[in-house]
Lab assay of single mutants.
Amino acid sequence: SIKEIEKEEIIKVLKEVNFNKKLASEILGIPLRTLYKRLKEYGI
């Protein structure tokens, strides 16, 4: 599903940037606030 793909992509990017959420949100092209929402939604 799209949610699974998105979750995997978020985890992959977070690992690449050593869990720097600000940098991860910039790489993913989403606002930091949205990233936090996704992390909560996906239980990351």
Rank of each mutant, 00 (worst) to 15 (best):
A24W: 02
V13L: 07
F19E: 03
L35C: 02
Y36H: 11
L23Y: 06
E8N: 13
I11D: 03
N20H: 05
Y42M: 14
N18S: 08
E6F: 09
N20T: 02
K3L: 11
K22F: 10
K40H: 14
N20V: 04
S25A: 15
Y42P: 02
K12N: 08
L39Y: 02
L39G: 01
E9S: 12
K37Q: 15
V17I: 04
L35D: 00
K15C: 12
E16A: 14
L14V: 03
I27W: 05
S1P: 13
E41H: 06
L39K: 01
E9I: 14
L23Q: 08
Y42T: 04
L28S: 01
I44M: 08
I27Y: 06
E9N: 15
E8R: 13
I44F: 10
I30F: 04
V13T: 07
L14M: 10
K15D: 04
L23V: 08
I27V: 08
E16C: 11
K15R: 13
S1N: 13
V17L: 05
E26H: 10
K15W: 11
G43S: 06
L39H: 01
L39W: 03
K37R: 12
V17P: 00
N18M: 08
K40A: 13
G29I: 02
N18I: 03
E16I: 09
I11Y: 09
I44R: 05
L23P: 01
F19N: 09
V17C: 08
I2D: 14
E26W: 08
R38D: 03
L14T: 01
E26L: 14
E41Y: 07
E6A: 11
S25I: 03
L35P: 00
S1M: 11
V17S: 07
K40V: 12
K7R: 14
K21F: 15
E26C: 07
G43T: 05
A24I: 02
S1K: 12
R33F: 10
L23I: 09
K22C: 08
T34L: 13
K37F: 06
R33A: 15
G43H: 10
Y42W: 12
N18Y: 08
N20S: 06
S25W: 01
I11E: 07
S1I: 11
L39A: 02
I10P: 00
K21V: 15
I44P: 04
Y36G: 06
I30P: 00
Y36I: 15
F19K: 02
N20G: 02
E26G: 06
E9Y: 15
I44N: 05
I11C: 09
E16F: 09
R38E: 05
E4K: 10
L35M: 04
E26F: 10
L39V: 04
E41A: 07
E26V: 13
I5V: 12
K15L: 13
G43I: 05
K12V: 04
S25V: 04
R38C: 10
V13P: 00
K3H: 13
L35K: 00
R33T: 13
E41N: 04
E16K: 11
I11A: 05
L32G: 02
E16V: 07
N18G: 12
K21R: 09
K22V: 11
K12A: 10
G29P: 01
S25H: 03
E16S: 14
E4T: 11
K15S: 08
L39R: 01
E6S: 14
S25R: 02
K15T: 11
G29M: 06
K12E: 05
E4I: 11
E16H: 09
E16Y: 10
R38S: 06
K40D: 08
Y42I: 10
G29L: 04
Y42F: 12
K22L: 11
L14D: 00
G43Y: 07
F19T: 01
I44K: 06
L14S: 01
L28H: 01
E4W: 07
